[in-house]
Design a protein around this nucleic acid. Structure first.
Lengths: 220, 220
DNA sequence: AAAAATTTTTAGATTTGCCTAAAATAATTT
DNA sequence: AAATTATTTTAGGCAAATCTAAAAATTTTT
């Protein structure tokens, strides 16, 4: 079944919100999408007739099996495109979201299959979020902040908690990017600072605070 | 100015049609777009208020300066995406049109600038059509059919006149693709057949009829 | 130059996706 | 448990993009 861009945006948003609360309610979805509650109610009816939604008037809603499946397809497309924009076109990771929002609605499954292969079947997007596989399965990433990561094991930088200008600036300085391979060489008990090694770069030292904000997942 | 996908499709279609006839008329555009004349009239009014069109009721229409400029932007996006789909994702050139139709409406100019660079600023799309540059200028390609192409000069296969299954099958067999580098080594006067060389492949012979249907433009 | 045929436009309807304002329902407070 | 407040839905409206059917303008034929 084919869905409009608007329907897809609702599906995706409901998926996101229902990760946090069992039932999603009209107002929170309206707030999330910057729309009015009445518009949301309209769309809920449409999604219900399309059998994507469990929805009882006045009592919240959530995606059913096929709704979730559809959401994961959309999220997969979004994240693959984000990966493409950063890894191939060299865009900044904090600037790709809006463009991926548009690209995600191009829904040829052959296109996505090929894009995935072309990119090397990435498991994680440039914001550190996992990319669902072709069957809609989210890869399980054992994300740990760098200060909780075991010594001398390779990890991949997967996300940064607060993506502020300041932290980005610092990571840039160290040559750390999402996707960088990293190994913790030593922890200094004195102040909790870490000596780390980024692939192909000389070892360097980062503060405990920085380490707390850098998340890493197990390589392999 | 931002245009809807629908408006962009009209703009692009008018551009195409006005290549063939001075003034475009309602019915021919309706036929081209598989729509009814009344719908076309509606859109003509809209495009006129947006100052893209010269249009006098009952007397045909054509794009004005900014209309043409907009059309070339859209065509540029379409052809760059077609190039990407074939050259990078390995899709068949006869299957990329529909997908490029969707991708072309994603209109970030930064995206297109980067895509163009990433692809090596290609001048010609996989169907052999020229790709307008960032300023909307169509590269002038000196296209000649292979049987009129000078001997021992490198050319690039740029298009095939009748893209039928039969001719495609033969080109495939010879390993000839749009974009292939080709050189004519010899012409046999007896039957007009040509000995040609495709980059990295052994020389081969093709019939005069085949050569007439293969177009080439000057390398460099 | 009328009549006939063709083309184009207008008028009015439909669907999608949004809105505001009012009504209905549910939750909270007193 | 009644009153108040908050949430959600309904009712009705609007713009975009399409349609059909009818009217208007233009072109062609006789």
């Amino acid at each position: 079944m084919k869905f409009s861009a608007s329907e897809e945006n609702y599906i995706k948003s409901i998926y996101t919100l229902q990760g946090k609360t069992e039932k999603v309610n009209t107002n929170s979805l309206a707030g999330y999408l910057n729309m009015r509650a009445a518009s949301v109610t309209d769309m809920l009816k449409r999604l219900k007739t399309k059998k994507l939604l469990e929805y009882k008037k006045y009592h919240g809603f959530r995606l059913n099996e096929s709704g979730n499946k559809e959401a994961l397809k959309i999220i997969r497309r979004h994240r693959l495109w984000e990966f493409f924009l950063v890894a191939r076109l060299g865009m900044e990771w904090d600037k790709v979201h809006a463009i991926a929002e548009e690209l995600e609605h191009v829904s040829s499954s052959d296109l996505i299959k090929r894009l995935d292969n072309y990119l090397g079947q990435p498991k994680i997007d440039p914001h550190g979020d996992p990319i669902p596989d072709a069957n809609g399965k989210m890869p399980v990433l054992h994300q740990v902040s760098l200060n909780n990561f075991p010594l001398k094991i390779h990890g991949i930088v997967s996300s940064v908690s607060s993506q502020t200008q300041q932290i980005m600036e610092m990571l840039n300085h160290y040559g750390i990017n999402i996707g960088s391979q990293v190994k913790v060489l030593k922890v200094f008990d004195f102040d909790g600072s870490l000596q780390i090694k980024i692939s192909k770069q000389p070892a360097c030292i980062i503060s405990a605070l920085a380490a707390q904000n850098i998340f890493v997942y197990d390589d392999k």
